[in-house]
Design a protein around this nucleic acid. Structure first.
Length: 114
DNA sequence: ATGCTGACCGAGC
DNA sequence: CGCTCGGCCAGCA
């Protein structure tokens, strides 16, 4: 019975962001998920807002947003901690193959659960 | 209030 | 497979 968004919190933007961060933190090392899957888990179609939330992420240790990629496996062009190159480096450090700026989702996709 | 933008996505060509 | 285009909708000037 996951409710869409916690209405109990007064700041809804924060709770949406926090929900995104929670899901991102649930991605195991060596796996990735997509904006689309996160949005879907949160019962919305707005993958852009998920991206927006991650853009505002300030702690890449706590919230490993390098494990979030496009629905087709491409890396985020606007990755804020050093660009796609840095995102690729971090993924490869975890054993995620990145071929031509792209991840094989058949192999590495993790679907976050509510 | 209103118009523009974006760490997106899927359809169409 | 790749590029373009429209839709999506919250945030912000």
């Amino acid at each position: 019975m996951g409710m869409t968004a916690c209405k109990m919190n007064s700041k809804k933007t924060i709770s949406f962001f926090q929900h995104v961060y929670d899901l991102v933190q649930s991605i195991p090392a060596g796996k990735v998920t997509t904006y689309r899957h996160i949005a879907h888990t949160m019962n919305t179609k707005d993958a852009r807002r998920v991206g927006h939330a991650l853009h505002a992420n300030s702690d890449s240790d706590k919230t490993p947003c390098h494990r979030v990629v496009f629905a087709d496996g491409r890396l985020a062009p606007g990755y804020v901690f050093g660009g796609p190159n840095e995102q690729m480096r971090r993924l490869q450090l975890e054993g995620v193959e990145c071929i031509d700026g792209r991840i094989n989702l058949k192999k590495y996709l993790y679907i976050p659960k509510n």
